[in-house]
Amino acid sequence: MTGEHPDATIAQRVRRLETLLEEKGLITGERVDEAIDAFLASSSPANGARVVARAWTDEGYKSRLLADGTAAVRELGYMEGSYQRLRVVENTAGTHNVIVCTLCSCYPLRLLGPSPSWYKSEAYRSRVVREPRSVLREFGLELPDTVDITVWDSSAESRYMVLPRRPEGTEGLAEEELAALVTRNALIGTAAL
């Protein structure tokens, strides 16, 4: 960090900042607590999984989701009050989508929850736009050469979520059971189901 106080740990400096801002009347500890709770409560990969399961079981919903992701997830109560737009991109037999933010770490928080460390890493951000097949291989996803890959770099106000392919042999499953199959990496595009 800045080096003036090498003994002060980051935790101590954060604590000191919070105290200073409280003394200045700018914040209260309770408001910060509430902000953390709100952040965690509104954001979960279970939300994205539920959207996917609905799309797999309801063709009309799927059409609306791909046409206007923001409006379609609001039907299920997500992203209300958000200024961001959501675009859902569909994986098919011939196309695979994967999302990144090369400039920082933009991510559809409300639908996917807090992002994994690797998503925020320089290694992922630098490489996936340049060599997506190699990157996906590191995640254990080997795609045939015939599959076209599109990398979505979240450089402005839209956020992206992948609609993964529905696994074979799941015809008999209910929507909730389908949602339980959906992983966070599948919603980012670094895994298939």
Binding site: S117, W118, A123, V135, E138, R184, N185
Partner: peptide
């Protein structure tokens, strides 16, 4: 420095899930 898209040399991705 944040603008890392395409920069080489950052190595393998630690794909461990948090």
């Amino acid at each position: 420095i944040n603008d890392v898209g395409g920069t080489q040399g950052f190595g393998a991705i630690d794909t461990a899930d948090d």
